[in-house]
Design a protein around this nucleic acid. Structure first.
Length: 680
DNA sequence: GTAGAACAGTTTTTT
DNA sequence: ACTGTTCTAC
């Protein structure tokens, strides 16, 4: 019946975009520069597929953030709905991140290969906690040479799994200072893998590994594959080897596969993403078609001139200059300022001036390399009552009280989840790691809380015990109340413990009220837990719900979190060497190149106005004691040819620096085994 | 075994 | 500033 409708209107597309939209089911790579309309193109392609008879539920749209998928599908609806009241069909499209799609597929099909579909998911912090636990248990912390910290251990593990490379190689190339600990790490990683299995827990990397294993499974694989006719992947340059393999298994030979990306915007190699995926696409999928989009619909010509010059400095890239038909507009500006105070002052001044000119705050964004770079600005915005939302950096879910509360729900969901159990029990006074583990033992082995009825907790915890047992049994019951009610129950039990344990308990408890409100949006507990871990809200405001349309706020964001977005005006903070590039990432030319692309991503978010700030003096540690500051050099990426495309100004009297400074058992057994063997 | 105090080391980006 | 680790007194 769709076929009788007018085809999707392609009139607004240019020739290349149209080619991409209309391309058949041979493997398709769309190399789309910043602002060249890749979202539009992808949305049109999905709409076109649906119109041509592909059933929406047989389309899979993989994006980097879930928000991106939702946004894209909204546009698809707009394209398809030509009769008022027509039911949008895009709602049935599978959209989400690799991790969330893996989660869905594993819940549906995991059982077919022996994975217990009731698994819970460990986020990064949980994974670190488990590594820490095992590190102590295996006595690895001892010895003359310091064993890598838990975060580093997990980075190494994750890198092995995601890049599909052996430990020795990963150590050599990315963690040379840990070379001496190869044996200890192997032991740690084997144990880590086994322990997750026993607890029926998957971490982020496992989601991908198990999804890949599911697709490779002779029985289950074909059934998963035949769910989909078309698979579209956005931000393909930021996929890793494991994701690349997963896609190939999903679409053998690449039939029905569309990949969209821009090698100039690859900024996730620290997460084992590899540009090779996009560069090697044509070789991997013979008979594929490549479409190049180079016309920017976003930036004005003077801005594009500057960003083109920036990216030309990359050592290795696909040569492609973007061009713009957007005439007029001023040049970008490079503002040298005395210090952070002045930077803040100047940014706020410009933001307010543009708002006077009619550009809403939400059309303006302040971007920075590291989350703490915006601290000073945030204080000033707060002081002056200018609303803002910050994206990136420490999130709501990472705060201790939120993790405490969610641990209750996770434990009820999966009583074998050791981390959740430890977290819950250790809230009780008098219960430390030893007691907690002893108490958990019978619960882990039986999978139920009944043993706790007769357990004898330490005296200090005795008064809390009956309520805790009742709570856990209620939450774990088959007829458990809806998620919001569950959160409410936990909150009641938890409030006094929270007050006893933390400062600012009232603020923390009100966070939890918000969590309770947010919980109403979820159908059931597994959905709530999975979605919160896989697509965490970036701020308390975001948890409270999507912003209303008349809500105006300035956007503050790490450059990473700004990927894929555009703004009328962009302000880039701290364009000093040491910040951009970060001196933590300035080790090799490969790393420097990635920092350059990051800078490029920041600048290329701008449509009409772009200001780059360079404070001469900065604090070299986050608001450190004594306020030590150093004198900075301008970012090396602002070389003379680049600066020639900028208007330069220095505000205020130069404060003249004198010196130049430096600044479960049986669950997916074969996959588990292979993971294990990886570190044999 | 637990809890709190004293001490030491380190700071990016995120699913 | 903050987190994680170690030490000491219950």
């Amino acid at each position: 019946m769709r076929a009788t409708l007018r085809p999707v209107d392609l009139g607004s597309l240019d020739e290349h975009q149209r080619e991409a939209v209309l391309s058949g089911d041979e493997p398709l790579l769309i190399v789309a520069g910043a602002g060249t309309g890749k979202t539009t193109t992808l949305a049109h392609r999905v709409a076109h597929l649906i119109e041509r008879g592909t059933r929406p539920e047989r389309i899979l749209l993989l994006t980097f953030a879930r928000r991106a998928a939702a946004e894209m599908l909204l546009r698809v609806d707009g394209l398809l709905r030509r009769h008022p009241g027509e039911r949008p069909s895009s709602g049935r499209v599978w959209g989400g991140t690799f991790h969330s799609i893996a989660n869905r597929l594993l819940r549906l099909h995991g059982g077919e290969m022996g994975l217990d579909p009731g698994f819970t998911i460990h986020d990064r912090a949980d994974s670190e906690d488990l590594v820490e636990l095992l590190r102590a248990e295996l006595d690895l912390a001892r010895g003359d040479r310091r064993f890598p910290r838990k975060a580093t251990c997990l980075d190494i593990y994750s890198r092995c799994v995601n890049s599909r490379r052996p430990l020795a190689e990963v150590l050599e190339s990315a963690f040379p200072w840990c070379r001496g600990h190869a044996e200890g790490l192997k032991l740690l990683f084997r144990t880590y893998t086994d322990r997750k299995g026993e607890q029926n827990v998957l971490d982020y990397d496992d989601l991908l590994t198990f999804a890949d294993g599911l697709l490779a499974d002779p029985a289950a694989g074909p059934r998963v594959r035949e769910r989909f006719d078309a698979v579209l992947v956005d931000e393909y340059q930021d996929t890793n080897a494991l994701q690349g393999d997963l896609l190939e298994r999903l679409r053998p030979g690449g039939r029905g596969l569309t990949a969209v990306g821009d090698d100039a915007q690859a900024i996730y190699s620290f997460r084992a993403a590899t540009v090779r995926n996009i560069l090697d696409f044509p070789r991997r999928y013979p008979g594929s078609r490549t479409v190049l989009l180079t016309r920017s619909f976003r930036s004005t010509r003077p801005l594009l001139e500057a960003t083109n010059r920036v990216i030309r400095q990359a050592r290795e890239r696909h040569a492609k200059d973007l061009w713009s038909s957007r005439e007029g507009g001023g040049r970008p500006e490079l503002v040298t300022c005395r210090d952070e105070e002045e930077q803040t002052e100047l940014v706020v001044g410009r933001v307010l001036a543009l708002r006077e000119d009619g550009i809403d705050l939400r059309r303006q964004a302040v971007l920075f390399r590291a989350s703490h770079h915006s601290a000073h600005l945030e204080i000033e915005l707060g002081r002056r009552g200018i609303p803002f939302r910050k994206y990136g950096g420490l999130r709501f879910l990472e705060s201790a009280h939120v993790r405490d509360l969610l641990a209750f729900l996770r434990l009820a969901e999966n009583p074998r989840d050791l981390l959740a159990g430890l977290r819950v029990l250790r809230l009780l006074p008098g219960v430390g790691p030893r007691t907690a583990r002893a108490l958990l033992e019978p619960v882990s082995s039986t999978g139920a809380f009944t043993p706790w009825r007769s357990a004898r907790p330490p005296p200090a915890a005795a008064s809390h015990w009956p309520a805790l047992v009742a709570l856990c049994e209620e939450l774990a019951a088959p007829a458990a109340p809806p998620p919001a009610v569950q959160v409410h129950r936990v909150r009641q039990f938890y409030a006094p413990l929270c007050e006893a344990r933390y400062d600012h308990a009232d603020a923390r408890l009100s966070d939890l009220e918000r969590l309770e409100e947010a919980a109403r949006a979820f159908a059931d507990r597994p959905a709530m837990l999975a979605e919160l871990t896989l697509d965490p809200p970036r701020s308390t405001q975001e948890l409270a719900g999507p912003p209303s349309l008349d809500d105006d706020y300035l956007v503050l964001s790490t450059i990473h979190s700004a990927k894929g977005l555009e703004f009328d005006a962009v302000y880039v903070l701290h364009a000093a060497d040491g910040n951009i590039p970060s001196d933590l990432a300035a080790g090799s030319s490969v790393e420097i190149d990635e920092e350059l692309r990051l800078f490029y991503v920041a600048l290329s978010r701008a449509r009409d106005h772009l200001s780059v700030f360079f404070p001469l003096r900065y604090y070299d540690r986050p608001a450190g004691a004594g306020g030590r500051h150093a004198y900075a050099q301008v970012s090396r990426f602002l070389s003379p040819p680049v600066r020639a495309a900028f208007d330069e100004c220095s505000a205020g009297p130069p404060g003249g620096p004198a010196a130049a400074g430096s600044a479960g058992p049986g669950a997916g057994p074969s996959i588990r085994k292979r993971l294990h063997d990886l570190f044999a």
